[in-house]
Design a protein around this nucleic acid. Sequence first.
DNA 1: TGTACATCAGTGAACGCGCGTTCACTGATGTAC
DNA 2: TGTACATCAGTGAACGCGCGTTCACTGATGTAC
Lengths: 208, 208
Amino acid sequence: MATLGYSRGMTVRSDSRDGRYHHGDLRRALIEAAVETVATDGPAAVTLRGLAARAGVSHAAPVHHFGDKAGLFAAIALEGFDMMADDLTAVWEATADFGEVGVRYVHFALAHPGHFEVMFRPDLAGPPGSDLVAAKERAFGMLTGPLVASGLEEHSESLRTTSLASWSIVHGLATLMLSGNVPVADRSTGDTLARRVLGLPGSGCPPV
Amino acid sequence: MATLGYSRGMTVRSDSRDGRYHHGDLRRALIEAAVETVATDGPAAVTLRGLAARAGVSHAAPVHHFGDKAGLFAAIALEGFDMMADDLTAVWEATADFGEVGVRYVHFALAHPGHFEVMFRPDLAGPPGSDLVAAKERAFGMLTGPLVASGLEEHSESLRTTSLASWSIVHGLATLMLSGNVPVADRSTGDTLARRVLGLPGSGCPPV
DNA sequence: TGTACATCAGTGAACGCGCGTTCACTGATGTAC
DNA sequence: TGTACATCAGTGAACGCGCGTTCACTGATGTAC
């Protein structure tokens, strides 16, 4: 369901605009600049003027694409949840292993730190639109659906609890890594650590 | 070890200054205003001028106590880690139950959301001082020490993994609650949910 | 194939605002004698 | 008990800065005929 076409390869040309009046894909360039800024310096460091400068465009140009700053963050959150939903779904369909879905959750956070931060800072964007709500449900559904498939009764207390526990542990681990509280050298280190923390494979206890 | 005397009751007088030249306890008033602002509107909403106005004091006064904005956040982080260390230690000493330490971690986050956010946003304060490092170690030690006491070998791989898993699940749960992604009506609801998620009492699996 | 025109994307000057920080200052407090 | 003086806490005016947003505009693109 990659209807958004958010892949990075989509950017048509480089940052240098060669004096051309039209940018080519300014919207994409602005989102990517914003996501990088969030990842390195946090959301507070994002300014429309700064992004415009990075894209080599006048400082009023971003308004044309996002209306305002909140609109930009809303676009990033939507893109992020869509990417995450795609990722988790693909892993589940390929492995049918709930633990691997958790590992991918952590992996996604490390691979897309800018998106991840914006996704879980609803204060940055305005009130969520129906498309964002749908993308969120699709992503979070991957933290419940597999548990139902593995035998937990739908709408049951134990399903809610198990699902929340799973979400907590992967979200907590991702957050602690991203905030620098748990050092992680590279992404494969992150995967390994996640696998270990989730008890994969074969610890005394089933994966969460 | 309440050497800091951070309890709220310490504030000497109300916010109204009655035209007096000296505030009485401006430092405390500023920290409390900041912590409340972080809790309701996030750290980006904290301005020295705003805090000064809330304390009924000229806008240049805060500089006198904290040097700059980063100094204010550093003070809040230190106070937060000290409070948390005290809390977790007290629970462990009273119950000798590691699960209860986890429940208290979540409880602390909900009870002191402003402190909690600043504590885990090292970018807000400057480079950490030795006092902050010590307070952090004291707090995080409570997520490891009890595991050693319960038989896990010190410096072992399984201690590291178990400790990180415990930290992840409570930190993740706290974060999801604070960000509004997991709704929690009041604090006792939070405690109950934490207890359930941690498998207390008696689930099939031991508390993480 | 050419022309007219509507639409779209980006420009650049201007605005008002709130911010952190500085500075010389003054009022209040406490201590030494 | 009183006086001199050092220290501390807060003042208020001023600064320069970067920000989001607005506005009338212009260049580029694409479509209808």
